[in-house]
Structures are given as structure tokens and as C-alpha cells.
């Protein structure tokens, strides 16, 4: 390729003008390391900036700590309690909490079957987190893919996928998953996650489609096309990295929503079978609400805090990723 070597002339033979220009740039950057951004942010991208911003937000720190803690609880509940949550001992029937007994079986008291509420709350986290995380993963991948295809290719692909999205969008999440889950026997956290995911991807798809359409018109996408880049390259190198931010925000908020949806389904007796779940416990507790509030209070409190933590995280991430809000 000798014809291309013209531009790779070693710097000693490059015209004097280059040096003048380069020197002045160098001198500029001597007084201020980067003309447009004075800080020594070596590889600062949108994400790096967002991270820098996030670390200073109390909302992010608090919700982040809660979520990390919940993940640890979900993975290894035995670290937090040695009590088995399943067998009950009617001797403890409806015992009130002993708030001084940290991390012990009777910390949060006992339920109507004499089971440790603390142990049940700890073991129940796994179901909630599994449903939340996997439903969100499913939704992000499926909705994201459909959104990208519709937004990037437009035309009849868009028309078809958008109508499909509209159809699924019309099905109420809870009612739809209720009907779907009826069909399953032996429902686990996975089946619930799948049901929620199948009905929930539309929001992500819509956000992704809109975001892709905006990014697709950017000059740098045109520039890549002008260079002869193929669709795959344009989508993965140029469109996706710039279009994904709003999707991540929507997904984080949706995660909280799925956790509460799982609780609702379990409350209605159509959620996880033979498992421990906050929703199921809330359901059982609701019949005893008049005489012993604590049976309801702890699973409901954990559920609320978890959902809130994810929604707060989503909010903080959205603010951090939107340069206009900074």
C-alpha cells in the first residue's frame, strides 16, 4: 500500500507549519492541561463523569449500600441467620419481636405457625431479588434488541415491531402474568421472572427505539457510514453505546417494579410455590393484621425498602447521565 504511506511521513519531514501549530497547542495545554476541561481526568467519558457525580450523591450511596446488602443476603442467607425458616414451633405462636436480640431467631418475633419472622425475611430476599434481576435482564435484552432493530432499520421492520410492541403494551402486567402463571404448575422464581419479562419488555423497547432514532441521525453515525462501515459495526460501536443510557435508567426503575409485582402475585397465591417470599408472607399475615401487626410489618417493610432503593438508584443514575441536569 505505498500510496497510503504519503501521510505517514516521519515527523521530521513534516512541514514547519505543523510544529508551530502543535507547539501552540502544547503550550496551551501547559498552562491548562486540557483546554476545554481543566481537570486531570485522563479517560473521562460520560460514564466516568456520571460515576464521579454519583459518588457524591447521598441518595446513590444509601440506595447502593442497601442493594449490595440485599444481594449478599439473597446469595448467602445463612450468613445472616442460622435459623431454618421453614419448620414452625407453635410454642412461639405470634410471639412479639424482641428488638434487643440482634440477628437472633426471635428478633422480629414469630408468625402464626411459630416460624421465625427474621429468618423468613432473610430467606425471602432471594425470591424477590431473583425475580427482579432476571425479569429485568430479560426485559433489557429482549426489549433492547427489538428497540434497536425497530429504531435502526425503520421502515417496515419498525412498523411491524412497533405494532407488536403496542399489542403487548396493551396487556396489563399483573393481570397478564396472573393468567400466564395459571398455566404453570410448580411455579418458581424463574417462571415468575419469565412471565413478568414476557409482558414487561415493551417499555424498554420503546425507550430504546426512541433513543436509537435520535442517535442514528448523529453526524458520527453518518461519518461511519461514509467510511463504509457495515450495520453491525455502526450498531455496536456507534449507536448502542450512545443510546443505552436511558434504557439503563428505565431498567433500574423497572427492577423495583418487578419485585413488587412478584410480591403482589405471591400475595394473590399465584406466585412462587413452596418457596419463601415476602409477598406470600404478607398475604398470610394480612389475616392476622388486627391482633399482631409485626407479622405484616417486617416483610412489608423489607419489600418497601428494596423497591425504594432500586427506584432511587434509577433516579440517581438518570440524573447523573443527563448532562443537562448537572
Amino acid at each position: 500500500m505505498s500510496d497510503t504511506s504519503g501521510i505517514t511521513s516521519p515527523s521530521h519531514s513534516s512541514p514547519a507549519g505543523d510544529y508551530a501549530a502543535k507547539e501552540e497547542v502544547a503550550r496551551q495545554s501547559g498552562t491548562a492541561p486540557q483546554p476545554s476541561e481543566p481537570k486531570k481526568t485522563q479517560a473521562s467519558s460520560l460514564w466516568a463523569n456520571a460515576w464521579r457525580d454519583l459518588r457524591r450523591r447521598p441518595v446513590f450511596i444509601v440506595s447502593g449500600i442497601i442493594i449490595v446488602l440485599l444481594i449478599v443476603i439473597a446469595i448467602a442467607p445463612s450468613l445472616f441467620t442460622s435459623t431454618n425458616p421453614k419448620p414452625g414451633d407453635l410454642a412461639h405462636f405470634m410471639q412479639k419481636p424482641k428488638l434487643g436480640h440482634f440477628f437472633e431467631a426471635d428478633w422480629f418475633g414469630y408468625d402464626g405457625q411459630g416460624r421465625s419472622i427474621y429468618a423468613r425475611v432473610i430467606y425471602g430476599a432471594r425470591a424477590s431479588m431473583t425475580v427482579g434481576v432476571f425479569a429485568t435482564l430479560f426485559v433489557t435484552v429482549a426489549g433492547g434488541l427489538i428497540g434497536i432493530l425497530a429504531g435502526y432499520f425503520g421502515g417496515w421492520v419498525d412498523a411491524l415491531l412497533s405494532r407488536l410492541t403496542d399489542i403487548f403494551f396493551g396487556i396489563p402486567l399483573l393481570l397478564g402474568s396472573l393468567v400466564m402463571l395459571q398455566a404453570f404448575t410448580g411455579r418458581t422464581a424463574w417462571t415468575v421472572a419469565l412471565a413478568l419479562g414476557v409482558l414487561g419488555w415493551t417499555q424498554v423497547a420503546r425507550v430504546m427505539r426512541g433513543s436509537v432514532i435520535t442517535v442514528k441521525q448523529a453526524d458520527y453515525v453518518q461519518a461511519a457510514r461514509a467510511l463504509g462501515a457495515g450495520n453491525g459495526r455502526i450498531i455496536f460501536k456507534h449507536v448502542l453505546p450512545n443510546a443505552i443510557a436511558p434504557v439503563i435508567v428505565v431498567a433500574t426503575i423497572a427492577l423495583g417494579m418487578y419485585i413488587s409485582a412478584e410480591a403482589t402475585l405471591s400475595y394473590m397465591g399465584i406466585g412462587i410455590q413452596n418457596g419463601i417470599s415476602w409477598g406470600a408472607d404478607i398475604s398470610t399475615a394480612s389475616s392476622q393484621i388486627r391482633n399482631s401487626l409485626h407479622v405484616l410489618l417486617f416483610p412489608a417493610g423489607f419489600l418497601t425498602v428494596t423497591v425504594l432503593a432500586f427506584i432511587m438508584l434509577g433516579d440517581a443514575v438518570r440524573d447523573a447521565l443527563d448532562p443537562k441536569l448537572r
Binding site: 501552540e24 503550550r27 496551551q28 498552562t31 483546554p35
Partner: peptide, 12 residues
């Protein structure tokens, strides 16, 4: 004119 307009956080 050589160079760039100044950074207003670090005016020479």
C-alpha cells in the same frame, strides 16, 4: 491567530 481562546477557569 495562533492558539485557542482561554479556559475561563484558568485565565492566563
Amino acid at each position: 491567530i495562533k492558539g485557542l481562546p482561554p479556559n475561563l477557569q484558568h485565565i492566563p
